[in-house]
């Protein structure tokens, strides 16, 4: 597997920050996933070799951590918090609204490949719930009533990208 030169440079700079190489594995997984969209078997192999680990040492993290994935997803990743404080303020209804507006089923990707919607657990912004984390941006107070507005904004974002 070939990785971009800048990415390899970033990775090479990261590893020596830790007293033990293995500690860098999660940060490497983040870097690779941010670049490639998901963690492929080749990526697992590459990271394992880089850190002198067995592939299983990397693979078992990919299957454990909710943020790491083994399949590509839609262009825009919509994560709706479903934990109690957000749920008390309508997160489930917000999620239903987003699914219909974006033509995307929970846990899946829209047929046009634009959106993936998932439930996530509390993302530490409960005072402004329901919250919807889109890629790296937090959208706050997304009540069912204004979920359409967010959906429109996301559709426009895809169009202009």
């Amino acid at each position: 597997m070939e990785l971009k030169t800048e990415l390899v440079e970033e990775i090479d700079a990261l590893i020596p920050k830790y007293p033990e190489k293995r500690s860098a594995v999660l940060m490497l997984l983040h870097k690779v996933q941010e670049d490639q969209g998901y963690i492929s078997p080749e990526a697992v192999q590459w990271i394992a070799e880089k850190l002198e680990l067995q592939p299983i040492n990397v693979q078992e993290l990919v299957t454990f951590y909710p943020m790491l994935r083994q399949e590509p997803i839609g262009k825009v990743h919509v994560k709706v918090c479903r934990t109690l404080p957000c749920a008390l303020n309508g997160a489930y209804a917000t999620c239903e609204k987003l699914q219909s507006e974006l033509n995307c089923k929970l846990g899946g990707t829209s047929p046009d490949g634009n959106f993936t919607i998932e439930f996530v657990e509390c993302i530490a912004s409960c005072g402004t719930g329901p919250v919807v984390h889109v890629d790296e941006t937090m959208h706050e107070n997304i009540r069912p009533e204004n979920a359409t507005e967010l959906a429109d904004q996301l559709k426009a974002q895809v169009k202009s990208s």
Binding site: S23, L26, M27, H30, Y65, P66, M67, L68, V120
Partner: peptide, 8 residues
Amino acid sequence: VVHRGAGA
């Protein structure tokens, strides 16, 4: 060093 978790 800043170390990032992954959602667990």
